Computed example of a mutant assay.
Amino acid sequence: MKKLFLLIAATLTFGSTAAQAQTATVLSCCARPAAASATEAFAMLATDKDFSGGHEAPLPYSYEGEGKMIEFKTTDGGTSHAFEIKSAKPSNKFLFVIHEWWGLNDYIKKEAATYAQELPGVNVIALDLYDGQVATTPEEAGKYMQAVKTERATAIIKGAQLYAGPKAQFASVGWCFGGGWSLQTALLGGKQTVGCVMYYGMPEKDVARLKTLNSDVLGLFADQDKWINPEVVKQFEKDMATAGKKVTVKEYPADHAFANPSNPKYNKELAADAHQKALAYLKARLKA
C-alpha cells in the first residue's frame, strides 16, 4: 500500500512538473510577439545609468522650416500624429524617419527636412512613437522609451503605411531607439519596403521574421558602443545570412550616439560620413 501511494505521488509530481514546463514553453514562445524581444529589450537600457548618463539633454532648438504636423488613423482604432514634408510633385515614394529616445522633437524635424531636400520626389514622414510626449531630460526620455508598447508602436507604423497608400514604396531611417524601430518598420512594410537604414539600434533576433524582409539593410554602428556592441552586430550579420538577406554594416571608431549633434560623444566627421552613406543608399533604393 505504501509503495502504491509513493507511485501515485511520483506520478502526480511528474505530471505537475510536465504541465508547468509545457505552460512555460507556451508562455515563452507565444506570450509576446517576436518584435517585442528586440525593441523592448533595448527600451530596458533606460534603467542602465551608464546609458542614460551618456545622453545629455539636447540644447534648445526650434525648427521653423517647411512641413506640417498631420493626423492619421492607426490600426488599433486610434489616431497618431507625425511631421510630414510632401514632395513638390505627387509621389508614391515615402521615407519614414524614426526618432531617437528624446521623441519627435525639432531636431528630428530638422533631420526630416534635410532628407526631404536631399531626396527630391520623396515624401518624408517623421513618426511619433511617444504619442506626443517629448523629453528634455534623460529621466523623461528613459521613462517614455520604457513606456512604449510594441502593439501601439506597431499600430502607429502600420497606420502611417496605410496613410501612404497601397501603391507606395517605403524606406526608413532611425537612430538609437529609432534604429531598432526602423528595422521593424521595414519588416511591417512587407513587399512595399524597398530600403532600411538603422543607426546603432537593436537588431531583430528572430530569423523567421528576418526572412520576411523585402529589402536589404544598411546598418551604421559604433565599435565602442557598450550596448549595441560588435558582438551584437556580428550576430545580426549571421542571422541575416541565415535568413538569406543582405545587410551592409559600417562600424565607426566611435561610441553610441556619435551621429547626434546634441550628444557629448558626437563626432562631426564620422556623422557626416555616415549620413552620406545613408543618403547614397536611400537614393539608390528610392531612385530619387
Rank of each mutant, 00 (worst) to 15 (best):
A135N: 11
G190E: 11
D206P: 02
Q224N: 15
P60V: 04
M69Y: 11
W102H: 10
K68Q: 13
E251Y: 01
Q192E: 11
A288D: 00
A10F: 09
L95G: 08
P253D: 11
G78S: 11
K234T: 12
E66H: 08
A186W: 03
D76W: 06
D128Y: 05
V26K: 14
Y61V: 07
L162M: 14
A126D: 08
M198A: 14
E269P: 00
K110V: 02
R285D: 00
A135R: 07
K93N: 04
S87A: 15
A36L: 03
T74Q: 08
A34D: 11
S80V: 01
T154M: 08
G54N: 11
E139Q: 15
G15L: 15
G189I: 02
M145P: 07
Y107N: 11
V233K: 04
Y266M: 04
G180L: 07
L282S: 04
V26E: 15
S28G: 03
T185D: 04
E40K: 12
L183C: 01
Q276H: 13
Y130D: 04
Q276I: 00
K167Y: 06
N105H: 10
V97Q: 04
H256W: 08
A272Y: 01
L7W: 11
S16K: 06
I125N: 04
A88M: 06
S87F: 05
Y163D: 09
K3N: 13
